[in-house]
Write a protein that binds this DNA or RNA. Structure first.
Length: 465
RNA sequence: GGCGCGGUGGCAGAGUGGUUAUGCAGCGGACUGCAACUCCGUGUACGCCGGUUCGAUUCCGACCCGCGCCUCCA
């Protein structure tokens, strides 16, 4: 691995780490496939959201001017079906889900993308791209009003997912449709059934296929060629493969320099999927764990690795994050602190394909050092390192809360901070009176309600378990 | 069947051709009235079999096992 400052990132296309060379010096143009807004976001979405949020934060930390575009798919079969089931207009459903998505993002500390294009706002550009593809001979209109992409016309089809076209065509699972010329062809435009939401086009009333919107929006927002394109692991094929075919055929230009894919989320060692019924929405999880714990859980392993969601793993994340916040408790961070050895170590591991697990180790090293300094009474140096810890944590989207606020959040115990303070004072009096049985009784009672007391020379602080 | 990824100590999870992270849990000690927090100490783990090498968990090959995609899915 290079020891210079270049950021190395793994590209799915080349299947290896490559040094990041941006098209424009100092600028990164990145597009990430976002949500289809027919339901609440689940943990898998959170994984992608957090992964690319950290990537964006680190690139900016390193001085890059990042333009981060993440689309919203707000028209599609699933949306229409769900809206129909709910008896609501499709856009009422999507508006609701977009609001919910934004709430979830904010809770998880995910920064808003710079642009969040919606498919329905790009119908004109989508139609233009489809027309171009037809004009260039890459697409054809079927008799029923659908328009398809003729996959065999695109010579390098399969280069991203390493699939051979013959295998795909031979595969029995590919939808065989009479209107398609080849089983592997995919829809660019879908003719509307009667009563469905539709837009007019040269091929009749209809709506865009799933893949074309991302080609249209990404090239419109970022140009024919841009730096990074990301998404969830299951988007590699067919979605991203199709995007490449569409975009490169339409523009005649190389589409994307680096393809990045996050790892999958499993639940109790099983694939999380709708059919297994074991998927968790972000809001369900946030009901059980603080958002920062969920984020910490996600960030403590590498973005490309598979993670397993379980009670035990989240509980461990909670304990581990608490250790970091403990080191910050009662420390007033220094105003300004220059680059330290910890910053350098952090940059070194993060530059290696955004190794957040390695970065996490650096965070713990800083916390340990802070604890030692505090033990030795070197408060000034501890204050400096607290600033470093908060700074580095910030690059991962962590440790930005006041420690006391972090520890005292929750409050399902029915106790107000004032009541707890009163109890603490009562216990302090009992201790002064050498009434340790009485003092312990108060502490035990609070503990039963999930309030834990920590004594120190400066006094007693409390936190919620 | 095709393509891809991975098997690291009780668990989570990085990494490296030789000095064997980090965290959680456990154990011992310090601190404490007792705890909690914190600190110190403590665990020679790298699926299996060959090969290359002075030396492999790390490179190469075979094997076993797990996972993902190939179908809407982040």
């Amino acid at each position: 691995m290079s020891t210079d400052n270049a950021i190395q990132l793994y590209s799915t296309l080349s299947q290896k780490k490559e040094a990041l060379r941006t098209i424009e010096p100092g600028k990164v143009r990145m597009y990430v496939c976002g949500m289809t807004v027919y339901d609440y976001c689940h943990l898998g979405h959170a994984r992608v959201l957090v992964a690319f949020d950290v990537i964006t934060r680190y690139l900016r930390h390193r001085g890059y001017d990042v333009t981060y575009v993440r689309n919203i798919t707000d028209i599609d079969d699933k949306i229409l079906r769900r809206a129909d089931e709910n008896g609501e207009a499709f856009d009422a459903l999507t508006d609701r889900m977009i609001d919910a998505m934004h709430e979830d993002e904010r809770a998880l500390g995910v920064l808003a993308p710079d642009d969040e294009p919606r498919a329905t706002a790009y119908i004109g550009q989508i139609l233009e791209m489809i027309q171009t593809l037809i004009d260039k001979g890459y697409a054809y209109a079927a008799d029923n009003g659908d328009v398809y992409y003729a996959v065999q016309k695109f010579e390098t089809y399969g280069k991203l997912s390493k699939k051979k076209l013959e295998d795909l065509i031979a595969g029995a699972r590919v939808d065989v449709s009479e209107v398609k010329r080849s089983p592997a062809d995919f829809a660019l435009w879908k003719a509307a059934k009667s009563g469905e939401v539709s837009w007019s086009s040269p091929w009749g009333e209809g709506r865009p296929g799933w893949h074309i919107e991302c080609s249209a929006m990404s090239t419109c927002c970022l140009g024919n060629t841009f730096d990074i394109h990301g998404g969830g692991p299951d988007l590699m094929f067919p979605h991203h493969e199709n995007e490449i075919a569409q975009s490169e055929a339409a523009t005649g230009k190389h589409f994307v320099n680096y393809w990045m894919h996050a790892g999958a989320v499993r639940v109790n060692k099983e694939k999380m999927s709708k059919s297994l019924g074991n998927f968790f929405t972000i809001r369900e999880i946030l009901d059980k764990y603080p958002a920062e714990v969920v984020r910490y859980f996600l960030v403590s392993s590498h973005y490309r690795s598979q993670v397993d969601y379980s009670e035990d793993n989240l509980a461990e994340a909670s304990n581990t994050l608490a250790r970091l916040y403990q080191s910050l408790r009662g420390v007033v961070p220094a105003e300004t602190v220059g680059e330290t050895e910890f910053d350098r170590r952090f940059a070194e591991v993060m530059s290696d394909d955004f190794n957040t697990a390695g970065a996490n180790t650096v965070l713990h090293a800083v916390a340990s050092e802070i604890n030692r300094l505090r033990r030795d009474g070197d408060d000034a140096e501890a204050a400096s390192l607290a600033t470093v810890l908060i700074r580095l944590g910030g690059v991962l989207g962590l440790l930005q809360q006041d420690p006391e606020v972090y520890f005292q959040a929750g409050g399902k115990d029915g106790l107000s901070p004032e009541e707890i303070e009163q109890q603490i004072e009562a216990r302090a009096q009992a201790r002064r009176d050498r009434d340790f049985a009485g003092a312990d009784r108060i502490r035990d009672e609070l503990a039963e309600k999930g309030v834990i007391l920590d004594d120190s020379r400066e006094g007693t602080t409390w936190r919620r378990a």
